[in-house]
Amino acid sequence: MTDQAYNFAYLDEQTKRMIRRAILKGIAVPGYQVPFASREMPMPYGWGTGGVQVTSACLVPEDRLKVIDQGADDTTNAVSIRKFFQRTAGVAVTEATAEATVIQTRHRIPETPLHEGQILVYQVPIPEPLRFLEPRETETRKMHELEEYGLMHVKLYEDIARHGTIATSYAYPVKVEGRYVMDPSPIPKFDNPKLGQNPAIQLFGAGREQRIYALPPFTEVVSLDFDDHPFEPSKAPHDCDLCGARDSYLDEVITDDRGGRMFVCSDTDFCAGRQADGHRGRLSAVEAVQ
């Protein structure tokens, strides 16, 4: 099953050591973007090359890997990456959040609470939260160094001025341990509260931009806001149409061209687990008929 032409988990040991050093440094300085020598991977940038390199550096033969894309285990991106590691590392895979030891994710944190010993690896397109306000990398690094984060609030101010409320709904900036402002990758702000005090290790890999950063277990993570416009995690005001969950993040699915739509959990494992436990939603019967 394992492809013998490649080293375990594709990357050579020297490269993995280099990446592990960056990961350790990232864990030692939570929220700080550690540069690393990102390698060419056998997939295009934007498909999770940063996350794949971090996962590769973390995997051991005993691991059980789960890969999700927007919460789902069965989308192309998730399936490809899962297959990649099955082939190059021969590790076991799973769709169950609770059973996984390493979870690589794009744009979601699983609904099922993580536990100690788990590693959550995020794919990050743009690691620099200040980027859209200050394009100069030299300047943004200086701003991190000197904790000059006023600009982040300018972005939120602009939101309120334009929309009456903080309209940023994903990649919502956070402050880590009262020090570094961090982009949590494009997760919905609904997931932001799960970043803090999480028992799992959270690692963030940006392949194109060659940055790794991390949140060690039980880190303080605060979403930025104003006193009179406090941070609010938001989701569609519905229950899941399949499992009836009221507190999970939902995807809206257009079902026909006459305005029909349904809301379903974006976390497929969570939804399936609930349905297996007998929970039902508004459209469950319809599903059953089909």
């Binding site: 000059e148 600009l151 101010y157 006193d227």
Partner: peptide, 8 residues
């Protein structure tokens, strides 16, 4: 905001 104002 740079010097800490947090009330919109």
């Amino acid at each position: 905001m740079a010097i800490g104002a947090r009330h919109y």
